[in-house]
Simulated scan of single mutants.
Amino acid sequence: MRTYKDVFAVPEFRVLFAGQTGAVAGGTMTMLALSTLVFAHTGSPFLAAVAYLAGFLPQVLGALTIGALADRLPPRPVMAGWEVVRAATLVLIASGALPVWGMLAVVMVVGFVESPIRAAGLALVADLLPGNGYVLGRSVLNMAVGAMQIAGYGVAGLLLAAIGPKAALLAAAGMALAVGGIYRFGLRARAPRSTGERVRSGTRALLGDRAVRGLLLAQWVPNGLIVGAEALFVPFAGASAGVLFMAAAGGMLAGDAVVGRWTSPSSRLRLAVPLYVLLAVPYLMFAFSPGVWVAAGLVAVASFGFAGHLGTQERYLEAVPEQLRGQALGLAGSGMQTGQALAATLTGTVAEAVAVNWTIVLAAAGSLVATALLWRTLTARLDVVRSHVPDLR
């Protein structure tokens, strides 16, 4: 597969694309509505922030403990059924029957269980799009995530202004039901990827290998610290923060389009370190407190560097045994989201004592240090990485 047209020629990928874009839009609406609802109940900015991140925080724990379910359960009924469960939890939260702590607990339980479910979807992408097709498919999905986040924030904002957060939660529940229907009637039935007893030791095998740990850290740390910098856009730019968020989304979309479509595996290997460096360097200019439009230009250029993760994900997918593919992708994705949430918490804490623009600079500097420490992992040849990873078959 060499073009996006080739990717979309696969019928089941079109189904996954529709389902995942709908899920992202609904998830974005949920995060904003829940944060608004909790703030309305408590008046606490801290609890509002916790509500916004609550679904991300337990995901890596879910990947570590029940991640093997991504490979041991049939994907279609699991993915479709989970959207029905998610819709029911959103209706419960919107009903007003739960106290604030109950809302947060439900969201965290959902985040914990959701990890292997999302991993099953990512593994299905790899099954449907072998070889270079996987990078093209992930590139398309990443671009869709950015677009649907913008759309989700826009729709949720309109609903919040017009009829309140409970209506936004109910709209997100309706979206989840629609996504469940897309999966149920659009995907064909498949057997579990693996039912072997040895798969139970998959997480231990993945984390116990130095090469795989390095590839996981390369997906979690440099990018996560930059997301922590993005978490400070509101205190940095105030009412103009939306300009910075749109610039970040635009830069990320451009990077995924260019690198995903017009590079080969070997060139993505060579581009990994330069793109990771590009991701951080423009943020160092925040030391000079740039105006919002200059800052937006810096953010757009930096966000192009997020495309460096495409090559890292490709090497990671090639490195792990096929029967652990779902579990491995779930661990990578869940760790990334949890890392971003923790990085945002860290930068927010630092910004209580250090000027916001200098906190952004510190996050960028930390990302550069992480990239330097991971240089060998980011430049290792695929055959070298694969030779280190145990095959559990």
Rank of each mutant, 00 (worst) to 15 (best):
L37F: 11
L37V: 01
F39M: 14
A40Y: 02
H41R: 15
H41S: 12
G43H: 05
G43Y: 07
P45D: 03
A49Y: 01
G55R: 13
F56H: 04
P58K: 00
Q59L: 09
V60I: 15
G62N: 00
A63N: 04
L64A: 11
I66E: 07
I66A: 03
G67H: 05
G67K: 07
A68E: 07
A68P: 04
A70H: 00
R72T: 05
R76C: 09
V78Q: 09
A80Y: 01
W82L: 06
E83L: 08
V84H: 03
R86L: 04
R86H: 12
A88E: 10
A88Q: 04
T89F: 03
T89P: 08
L90T: 04
L92V: 14
L92I: 03
I93R: 00
I93V: 10
I93Q: 06
A94S: 05
G96D: 03
L98E: 07
P99K: 12
V100C: 14
L104I: 11
A105I: 11
V106L: 11
M108E: 09
M108V: 12
V110Y: 01
S115C: 12
S115D: 08
P116N: 12
P116W: 02
P116G: 13
A119T: 14
A120E: 01
G121R: 02
L122F: 14
L122V: 15
L122E: 11
L122N: 15
A123G: 13
A123D: 02
L124A: 07
L124S: 13
L128D: 11
L128P: 09
P130Q: 14
G133R: 14
G133F: 14
Y134V: 14
Y134T: 15
Y134C: 08
V135G: 09
G137V: 03
S139E: 04
V140M: 14
V140Q: 01
N142T: 09
M143L: 10
A144R: 05
V145L: 11
A147N: 10
M148I: 09
I150Q: 00
A151F: 06
G152L: 09
Y153Q: 13
Y153T: 10
Y153F: 15
A156I: 00
G157Q: 03
L158K: 06
L159K: 00
L159H: 08
A161V: 06
A161C: 07
G164P: 00
P165A: 14
K166F: 05
K166P: 01
A167H: 04
L169M: 09
L170E: 02
L170Q: 01
L170P: 01
L170N: 07
A171K: 02
